[in-house]
């Protein structure tokens, strides 16, 4: 299948006015202005297939929003080729806009003083959604996002969680082929985050809507996006499955063995002892190929083993290791 979004060597450079400090500097800048070039996105290449859910991840200022803006057609790339649904987004802004949905966690697209339903009705006109289709979608989204209780309440009376669900529904009413979400769970509580994640995963699965999501919250990625694109300083660092990232980094699973009584030192070939608390011993499993069975076979019977706990490394740790390795690499290179 052809890629629904493809970026080929995309660059974005901003020219920023250099502000000079002090009164003298301020006066000087009235006559001569100097600019600094800021490269927000540099040489990004990727391809996204229809129906994928991709997490776009990076620290603040990594160029995530800039990339989203270019893909939605409201920012032009400085260099490189970008294609969304077979078109160059910024030269086909209107046509592109009809087929995508966008949610900004920090900006609202709802009418503040009006009931949620009225903003939906306005979108029906903007996107020219047929009446029956609109009714179906509204019913589906209301049920899935549990909005029935507040559909007729003015937006200003809603909680942040309710509002965000309404924002997401608004972006999906016209059956977009791609939905871009810029930090959709920012500021939400645990329950609201969970509702949003489950819903997005379901929309992706059942409707085949392609999802591009930027976030700081790694659980978003874990629950919605099998694929991860990581950027920093505008550059692409990693593109692939989350599980591959784990494997690449040498997924270090943590194993805890609990014994009825302290069995004494217990070195193993299959696992590295990391901490010894006597009756409880903590190991790290460096090798992906080694299974729990292998370890238990090695430990054998006779030590009075009471309980076993195996933990997958959580995504936060994986990512942290990744960025640390990267800065080490960068340090070594310079």
């Amino acid at each position: 299948m052809a890629a629904i979004i493809s970026a080929d060597g995309v660059d974005k450079t901003f020219r920023q006015l250099k502000r000079q400090s002090g009164l003298a500097g301020g006066l000087r800048s009235l006559f001569s202005r100097t600019y600094t070039e800021i490269r927000a996105v540099s040489d990004i290449t990727f391809a996204i297939e229809p129906g994928e859910a991709v997490g776009y991840l990076g620290p603040n200022g990594a160029g995530k929003s800039t990339m989203i803006k270019m893909m939605t057609g409201i920012l032009t790339p400085s260099a490189g080729a970008l294609s969304v649904l077979g078109r160059e987004p910024h030269t086909n802004r209107m046509r592109n806009a009809r087929e995508i949905g966008v949610v900004f966690g920090q900006r609202s697209q709802l009418w503040w003083d009006l009931p949620v339903r009225d903003s939906f009705a306005l979108n029906r006109h903007i996107y020219d959604i047929p009446e029956a289709r609109f009714a179906d979608n509204l019913a589906f989204l209301t049920e899935m996002l549990d909005m029935g209780a507040y559909l007729d309440r003015p937006v200003r009376q809603l909680s942040l969680g309710q509002r965000m669900r309404a924002e997401i529904a608004l972006a999906l009413l016209h059956d977009p082929k791609i939905i871009f979400l810029d930090e959709p769970t920012i500021g939400l509580d645990v329950v609201a985050k969970d509702a949003v994640r489950k819903f997005l995963a379901r929309v992706n699965r059942e409707r085949g809507t392609t999802i591009i999501l930027t976030t700081h919250d790694l659980v978003d990625i874990e629950e919605i996006c099998p694929r991860l694109i990581m950027v920093d300083d505008g550059k692409l660092l990693f593109d692939g499955e989350l599980t591959r990232l784990r494997a690449d980094l040498g997924s270090r699973r943590r194993l805890t063995l609990e014994f009825a009584t302290d069995p004494g030192p217990l070195p193993l070939a299959t696992a590295t002892l990391s901490r010894d608390e006597g009756a409880a011993k903590h190991y790290l499993l460096e090798d992906e190929a080694i299974s729990l069975i292998d370890v238990l076979n090695e430990v054998g019977r006779g030590h009075g083993l009471k309980d076993v706990k195996l933990e997958e490394p959580d995504i936060e740790e994986v990512i942290r290791t990744f960025y640390q390795n990267k800065s080490r690499l960068a340090g070594a290179a310079s």
């Binding site: 003083d113 009006l114 009705a121 306005l122 006109h125």
Partner: peptide
């Protein structure tokens, strides 16, 4: 762009004003 969307904007703005009696 659909011309039909613009009257909807006018109507929505009108409605929003009714919120503050």
């Amino acid at each position: 762009m659909r011309a039909g969307a613009y009257p909807a904007f006018a109507l929505t703005a009108f409605q929003s004003r009714l919120a503050y009696r």
